[in-house]
Amino acid sequence: MPRHFGAMIRAELRAVFGRASGKIALGAGLLIPLVVAVVLTWFQQKTVDARFNGMPIDQLADLSIRGVAGYSLMVRNMVVLPLLLVLATAAAVAGERKENTLREVMVRPVPRWTIALAKVLALLVLSGGSLLLTLLPSLGMGLALFDTSSPIHRVLLGYLACMGTDLGLICLAMLAGAFVRSVGGVVVLLVLLMLGDLAGRMVLTLAGNLGVEDALVIVEYFPGAALDAWEGWKDGFVWKQFLGLGVLIAGTFGVTALRFTRMDVP
């Protein structure tokens, strides 16, 4: 590991936070709890008469500090933030390869895998920053506007787990970016991969429900299942998902590091 690895990470942080994808990720992270709090306030004050299966939504929704933080995390992870993280990662790898700026760091006297690691860690800081920008306002508004008696430790663990699943997503996008030379290409590849993963899990779940032995067990080890590990804040965390997440992170980063070491830089 180079002695100036810290400086490398700081340089990558400036790049990650300086790009539009990084700024939007932070902005979206901040906006989400505000929107969630406003909607929950509407439900609480019965400003809207929303119902689900005939039940008033205010009786179904968790109108507490736990609910604000938890729903904010769910909304965050629905589409916007994962997509922005993939975009930020793609820009840091595939984008830099295409613009030849990766070449300029590759001629520096550092092992190439450390460049990949610096990028991953900077992107993880972006993930952490966006999570904090979601968590802190949601806790603040939860304290000010909603019931504070419900325990929130599991939601907090959910946020922590989300950093792990974000890391898995970043590593997956890094791997794609190490092979594909366009930001759009990385996004398309990841979307196709996730759709394939979802379809595979659906087929296996169906097979499991039809009595095929082990089908449901295999589902738990799919990359998509690992990336959903944060959802345990609702009903309890599943250790197999975290095991799968660990394998996903180690495997994808290992292959990315190898690819970085061996790839020709134009």
Partner: peptide
Amino acid sequence: LVETPAFHDWMTGRANLARSVAFAG
């Protein structure tokens, strides 16, 4: 300097050099 030099266009010239210094150590 290899062929046409590439930079992060949205960064200043000084910031681009600082990035190189950071990676060079």
